[in-house]
């Protein structure tokens, strides 16, 4: 006996629901988060672009920026990108020790980057070029500081994942998390390309 309900079920419910493994949409979701983060940075870049020439009688980029230091900083971030890549390759091969090692090196490069940036910031503030000095410096500290904050949280995340991998190994969930952090970390390097080009290099040309 087939009732109307049975017919409906046949029509609207598949016998076997399409298989969505756990976390199958995580990477796309995280990518869309990164795109929204990209919009935040775009707005900060636009703010810097508009305010970047308003010195309010204070010092300009030429007096403040130290290009060799920025070059060192840039190479720190670039090196951390490639070492994270090696961590991902080690993860693909299922080598836990190598993954952990490369992650640790990545974290150290990240810390070096942060250290140099904080040194630069403290140097600027010490010279009387703090964020409250001019619109140029306010937007500079906001843009570069937001990037630095992202790197800071990236390092916190990295340490968290290293503990996770140590405790639970390279289980699928941890692999997925490491891939999300990989996107995040490389994304921050892409943002840094914009920062060193538009803030530091273009600043020196003014």
């Amino acid at each position: 006996m087939t009732t109307q309900a049975d017919l409906d079920r046949e029509r609207f419910h598949l016998d076997e629901e399409p298989h969505h493994p756990e976390g199958s949409s995580t990477m796309l979701g995280f990518w869309i988060y990164l795109m929204s983060d990209c919009l935040i940075f775009a707005m900060l870049f636009a703010t810097y672009g508009v305010l970047g020439t308003s010195y309010a009688g204070g010092p300009g980029p030429k007096e403040l920026f130290d290009l060799p230091l920025v070059a060192v900083n840039t190479s720190m971030l670039l090196l951390s990108s490639i070492t994270y890549g090696f961590a991902m390759l080690a993860m693909t091969d299922g080598k836990r020790g190598a993954t952990q090692g490369w992650l640790a090196i990545t974290g150290l490069f990240g810390l070096a980057f942060l250290g140099i940036e904080l040194y630069e910031f403290s140097h600027l503030i010490h010279e009387g070029a703090g964020p409250q000095t001019s619109a140029f410096l306010s937007s500079f500290f906001t843009l570069v500081g937001t990037h630095g904050l992202h790197v800071t949280f990236g390092i916190v995340w990295l340490v968290t994942l290293m503990v996770q991998v140590q405790v639970k190994g390279l289980i699928p969930a941890n692999r997925r998390r490491l891939m999300c952090l990989s996107l995040f970390w490389h994304f921050l390097d892409v943002i840094w390309i914009g920062v060193f080009t538009f803030v530091y290099l273009m600043g020196m040309l003014r």
Partner: peptide, 17 residues
């Protein structure tokens, strides 16, 4: 998603400036 973001970023940046 990337192309959409790039379009928005270009509009926002060039428009603001």
């Amino acid at each position: 998603a990337l192309l959409f973001t790039v379009v928005i970023v270009l509009i926002a940046l060039s428009g603001s400036l």
